[in-house]
Design a protein around this nucleic acid. Sequence first.
DNA 1: CAGCCGTAGTGGTCTGACCAACCTGGTGAT
DNA 2: ATCACCAGGTTGGTCAGACCACTACGGCTG
Lengths: 242, 242
Amino acid sequence: MDETAPQKGTVETAPQKGTVTQRAIEAVKAMIAEGRLEPGQRLPTERDLAARLGISRSSMREAIRALTVLGVLEARHGSGIYVTQLEAGDLLETFGVVADLSRGPRLVELLEVRRILESTATALAAARITPDQLAEVEKHLTAMNATDDPEEILAHDLAFHREIAAAAGNDTMAAILEGLSSRTFRARVWRGYQEEGAFARTRREHAAIHRALVAHDPEAARAAAAAHVGEVEEWLRTQLGG
Amino acid sequence: MDETAPQKGTVETAPQKGTVTQRAIEAVKAMIAEGRLEPGQRLPTERDLAARLGISRSSMREAIRALTVLGVLEARHGSGIYVTQLEAGDLLETFGVVADLSRGPRLVELLEVRRILESTATALAAARITPDQLAEVEKHLTAMNATDDPEEILAHDLAFHREIAAAAGNDTMAAILEGLSSRTFRARVWRGYQEEGAFARTRREHAAIHRALVAHDPEAARAAAAAHVGEVEEWLRTQLGG
DNA sequence: CAGCCGTAGTGGTCTGACCAACCTGGTGAT
DNA sequence: ATCACCAGGTTGGTCAGACCACTACGGCTG
């Protein structure tokens, strides 16, 4: 009657594969993918889940933590664990990590991706932007040109592009661009770029983008945005390759 | 000399902010971002790190697990914890999760992003592809047309596009596209799409892409790729909106 | 009826133990 | 001298149980 033997006990749980925690992660992901867990819904207790999967609470917590960082789950102290809304913003938040930890040639690649997406997003925005959205864009444009504080300029610059991306109507694309322009990422690149007195050029490029948006001219918007990002891209390329 | 007191011992560690684990995650990320940890380098022991940050091993493990899932760290049982190469593929693996957990309108948005990136990547590939790479592409193209097994077709289809993305010369873009075409993602969409006898059309579109690559014609390649993805995109759109 | 407060429930953290895989270095046979 | 083997230490993986911190719910009080 000694069931202490290293046998597989847990009913019909999947066979051993990788670490226990990994299995737990897959299990929860599967529950969500199969619709057994809806966005916003509350999960069972950590203790419950652990027992249900036949693992310890520690291991289950690691799985939950991982899914939390991925933006799939959200743990509220004292209340419970919930599935996020699984919107683009939730899941793509981790995209910023890529930008933060990339260096050298990879930064150029990221800027290339951003140029492609940003130019398309700006073109779409030119066609679809509403007066309200346009006003919001202009707000940041003027604010950006009215101050000398680099921090503030950067903030408004980010907001400027964010509003445009939002106006493009594709939340997923906007979320990706958000990650590609994460605060730390731009701060690192911008620092050097702006030190070369690129403020005037940046201002001119922003004006061109704005003009295209007002004119609802997608092609002009695409070109202006591509040139804008391309300038930084080229500068960075020379900084590296010599 | 009794440092056993429950005091903040660790030199000048940041004050309390969020959960302990979260702080640990940030600490490791910072170490990497600041270059104190190089790609491929081995980290101190779990026990060491925990002691160094003044937290328990459990909490430190959660942090490590989270960074492992993000593709930043890699734990080798019995050996130690290492920083990954921090290449595009490592960090963007989590992108697949987004595709796996997205449904409804978000799937269309993802396909739209893919269309934008894939068309550009194919255009770049047309300009740069080498004979060797082209041969590889053709291998999968013919293999795809030579079988009836949907599983095999899907596998070669994925490889077909993967080779093209690789030929574009931007690893980051290739990694993102890889995530956007993850196995489970395409399986879900394809199932329905191909049931409508879209095989012939798909074959024709692949042929067009191949022709453009052979001719080193970027514009034709861009158009062909955009149309290819756009077809699926349109079909999915009608499936949802009615 | 409104507001306070206590208590049960839940996530957050810690401790300490043991298991399993890896790696190093020594030992012995060839 | 060389190489195969194996024994022990190091390190990640897992487990168990305890306590703390916060939330939410419901009864009690004014």
